[in-house]
Design a protein around this nucleic acid. Structure first.
Ligand SMILES: NC(=O)c1ccc[n+]([C@@H]2O[C@H](COP(=O)([O-])OP(=O)(O)OC[C@H]3O[C@@H](n4cnc5c(N)ncnc54)[C@H](O)[C@@H]3O)[C@@H](O)[C@H]2O)c1
Ligand SMILES: NC(=O)c1ccc[n+]([C@@H]2O[C@H](COP(=O)([O-])OP(=O)(O)OC[C@H]3O[C@@H](n4cnc5c(N)ncnc54)[C@H](O)[C@@H]3O)[C@@H](O)[C@H]2O)c1
Lengths: 195, 195
DNA sequence: TCTTTCTTGTGAAATTTTTCTCAAGTTCAT
DNA sequence: ATGAACTTGAGAAAAATTTCACAAGAAAGA
């Protein structure tokens, strides 16, 4: 689904107003009926004989996915990866604002990264509750990920994305998503080994 | 599949020698027959009534996936994300060595990041051919990703992992994999909007 | 208006993935 | 030994996903 947005935004910036599923499929490298099925799932947006109106479609997809609004995020673990995310300009562009950054290292507390002051993790609950935080990003070492998740849950955060390569345990009303690059490297190694 | 490795390595470091699929499934948060099917796919590694020997299983999985060896990688685009990857200690630990780093920004060329000298992208072919490079990582801005891919193809690299949020076109003997965090954020936004 | 050319939306078919089930192998206490 | 308790591997069933195929709507030229 994310690919559709990527490609449609490209088309939009190229001023292309309409695109048929066949062409969109090519750009997304998927089957065209796949696209039609996916899009039909949340409404009739195409026009027979014409195709899909890029802008309308984008808006419809974004609304359906819940990304036609801003989401407040916090980040715990201002290390290599944490800094990269804090400095990543595309996240706020897409409606995901990292509102605060936390770390437990006294040398990092007080530092500023991309306009964010790094705050002590112990103050997470207190700080995060001042603002309605939707999503927490964990970029601590794996052995600290559970602790970071606990802090987030105490602050009432219901969505956690864990970049540390370890499973975490959360209560049933919290959604966790795992991001692990090494899976992509592994998958690549496999494909290169079995040509 | 990557989860299995993660969890098995955890077990190994805890000195646990044997684990039944049921317990492994719990830790990986998947169905236990799923695990048995997956593992049976590349051999009979379990012992009925006992379970799987952690060390043997790990070795077998790693061999099957082609990660019981070292893979030579290069990275193009020494920005926020590129630096994080260059400094990421787990990659070499898992057998993925980033051998060289390239950038086109004259201010960055010559700089050292995590023991790697940053080299001008124009010298990629020349440099990369001195060593058998297996995998190329693209961490440039999206509008430069295709160019980076072209350089890699010219150097004979057959596997490309693109962290830039754009599709790239490659010849049929090259494998591309896309990594896009924002997909995880989008998926989280969707799940939080449809509770 | 009619015909030709596109292209969607969708039911049906095909394929893939996941789950269920259980015979058969292993261990251990008695 | 024997039985009870486990656990795998794999066939069958179920569920989900992907692809096919085409009726029906839209546009454009004759
Ligand atoms: N660097 C990468 O490119 C990369 C890629 C994929 C995954 N990861 C994963 O992301 C995580 C971070 O990687 P990194 O390279 O940034 O490591 P890092 O060591 O540079 O950063 C970790 C940061 O977390 C902080 N921290 C530790 N415990 C904490 C706690 N309890 N509360 C708050 N902050 C805490 C540390 O002070 C440090 O600043 C790791 O789990 C790593 O495996 C990193
Ligand atoms: N920062 C993140 O956390 C993050 C997360 C996800 C995806 N990404 C993606 O990763 C890419 C890099 O992000 P970033 O934040 O590091 O950006 P960045 O601007 O900090 O870094 C980009 C680097 O690429 C270099 N570059 C540009 N053109 C080049 C070329 N032709 N050859 C070699 N080097 C070239 C630039 O000099 C710069 O050093 C972007 O596409 C971004 O969308 C970044």
């Amino acid at each position: 689904m994310g690919v559709y947005i990527q490609v449609l935004e490209d088309l939009q910036s190229q001023q292309q107003q309409v695109i048929p599923s066949e062409k969109l499929a090519e750009k997304c490298e998927v089957n065209s009926s796949q696209i039609r099925k996916d899009l039909a799932y949340f409404g009739e947006f195409g026009v027979r004989g014409v195709g899909y109106y890029v802008t309308d479609l984008l808006q419809a997809i974004k609304h359906f996915l819940g990304i036609d609004r801003n989401w407040n995020c916090i980040l715990v673990g201002v290390g290599n990866l944490g800094r990269a995310l804090l400095r990543h300009r595309q996240l706020p562009q897409k409606g995901f604002q990292i509102r605060m950054a936390f770390d437990c290292d006294p040398f990092k507390i007080g530092e500023h990264v991309a306009g964010h002051e790094v705050v002590c993790t112990r103050r997470l609950k207190e700080k995060a509750q001042l603002m309605q935080i939707d999503i927490g990003l964990i970029t601590t070492p794996p052995e600290r990920a559970q602790r970071a998740a606990n802090h987030m849950m105490q602050a009432g955060i219901k969505g956690i994305i864990n970049f540390a390569p370890t499973r975490i345990h959360v209560s049933s009303d919290v959604t966790v998503d795992y991001v692990d690059f090494s899976n992509h490297l592994i998958s690549m190694a496999f494909r290169l080994s079995h040509p």
